[in-house]
Computed example of a mutant assay.
Amino acid sequence: MTEQHSTLRAQRRAETQRLLQTHAIRLFTERGYDATTVNDVAGAAGVSPMTVYRHFPTKEDLVLIDQYGQLIAEQIAASPAAQPLVRRIGGALIESARTLTGGRHGGDLTPNEQFLLARLRLMISTPALRAKHLDNHYALQQAIVAALDDDGAEPDTAFLAQAAASACLAAMHTALVRWAEDDGRTELPDLIAKAFAAAFGDDIVGTD
């Protein structure tokens, strides 16, 4: 019963966070990031400013906080340990992007794609968010390294994992910027796969 209640609380928390972020991204896009206050977001969501701060300690967090690191880590942990590091990481990033964007097959952007695209544009165009985005990038790199961790590995395994994660995230960032510039016309997983192929070779997302 306790575990069920804990799960329900986590689900409600995630739903509240997504609601707040949806309103925040919309207002930031319509009015501008600097011109929109946390009180504005709270009013649009029908909650108190204290509720917003409970979920997002700073205004920047309304754009930057996400659960994507956990999703990517789960994908990596489920991948075959015998695969090269770059393939494990690259495959996880592509599959996570497919999950997050809603699996569009041509046509109009899905609601998830619209949200992610607006969020990405804000991170690219807002100086305060660009600076803090580096912290998120490092946190995601560390989540990837932790997912690749092997207690019986050689001492330099963490270094190799960090190098592979950093290279993969750099390639993904290039794909994300292109996706924003392209107004989301090309499906994000395909762009990420192209970036990995350019950086690491055509077989990077293949199977052994």
Rank of each mutant, 00 (worst) to 15 (best):
residue 2 T to W: 10
residue 2 T to N: 12
residue 2 T to H: 11
residue 2 T to A: 09
residue 6 S to A: 04
residue 8 L to N: 05
residue 8 L to Y: 14
residue 9 R to N: 06
residue 10 A to K: 04
residue 10 A to E: 09
residue 12 R to L: 07
residue 12 R to M: 06
residue 14 A to R: 05
residue 14 A to S: 11
residue 15 E to F: 13
residue 16 T to E: 14
residue 18 R to L: 14
residue 19 L to F: 09
residue 19 L to T: 14
residue 23 H to T: 08
residue 25 I to V: 13
residue 25 I to T: 03
residue 26 R to N: 10
residue 26 R to Y: 12
residue 27 L to H: 06
residue 28 F to M: 07
residue 29 T to P: 01
residue 31 R to T: 14
residue 31 R to A: 15
residue 33 Y to M: 08
residue 34 D to P: 12
residue 35 A to F: 14
residue 36 T to E: 11
residue 38 V to G: 10
residue 39 N to D: 15
residue 44 A to D: 11
residue 50 M to D: 14
residue 57 P to T: 13
residue 58 T to I: 10
residue 60 E to R: 04
residue 61 D to S: 10
residue 64 L to M: 05
residue 64 L to N: 08
residue 65 I to E: 12
residue 65 I to R: 08
residue 66 D to L: 11
residue 66 D to W: 07
residue 66 D to E: 13
residue 68 Y to P: 00
residue 69 G to P: 03
residue 70 Q to V: 04
residue 70 Q to L: 12
residue 72 I to A: 00
residue 73 A to K: 02
residue 75 Q to R: 02
residue 75 Q to S: 02
residue 76 I to S: 00
residue 78 A to C: 09
residue 81 A to N: 07
residue 83 Q to V: 07
residue 84 P to R: 09
residue 86 V to R: 11
residue 87 R to F: 14
residue 87 R to C: 12
residue 88 R to E: 04
residue 88 R to T: 03
residue 89 I to K: 00
residue 93 L to H: 00
residue 94 I to S: 01
residue 95 E to C: 00
residue 96 S to M: 00
residue 97 A to S: 04
residue 99 T to K: 00
residue 102 G to Q: 01
residue 104 R to H: 01
residue 107 G to M: 07
residue 108 D to T: 02
residue 109 L to F: 08
residue 111 P to L: 07
residue 115 F to A: 05
residue 116 L to C: 03
residue 116 L to P: 05
residue 116 L to Y: 08
residue 120 L to M: 15
residue 127 P to I: 15
residue 127 P to E: 14
residue 129 L to A: 04
residue 130 R to P: 15
residue 130 R to I: 13
residue 130 R to D: 12
residue 132 K to Y: 12
residue 141 Q to N: 07
residue 142 Q to G: 04
residue 145 V to E: 01
residue 146 A to I: 04
residue 147 A to N: 06
residue 147 A to V: 03
residue 149 D to T: 02
residue 150 D to K: 03
residue 150 D to C: 02
residue 154 E to D: 08
residue 155 P to N: 02
residue 156 D to A: 06
residue 157 T to R: 09
residue 159 F to P: 00
residue 160 L to R: 05
residue 160 L to K: 02
residue 162 Q to E: 06
residue 162 Q to P: 00
residue 162 Q to H: 01
residue 163 A to T: 03
residue 164 A to G: 05
residue 164 A to M: 00
residue 165 A to M: 05
residue 166 S to G: 11
residue 166 S to L: 10
residue 168 C to K: 02
residue 168 C to D: 01
residue 169 L to W: 03
residue 171 A to F: 02
residue 175 A to C: 10
residue 175 A to M: 13
residue 176 L to M: 04
residue 177 V to L: 15
residue 180 A to M: 08
residue 181 E to I: 08
residue 182 D to P: 06
residue 182 D to Y: 08
residue 186 T to A: 12
residue 187 E to Q: 04
residue 191 L to S: 05
residue 191 L to R: 02
residue 191 L to P: 01
residue 192 I to V: 06
residue 194 K to H: 12
residue 197 A to S: 13
residue 198 A to W: 14
residue 198 A to G: 09
residue 200 F to Y: 09
residue 204 I to T: 04
residue 206 G to L: 10
residue 206 G to V: 01
residue 206 G to D: 05
residue 206 G to F: 07
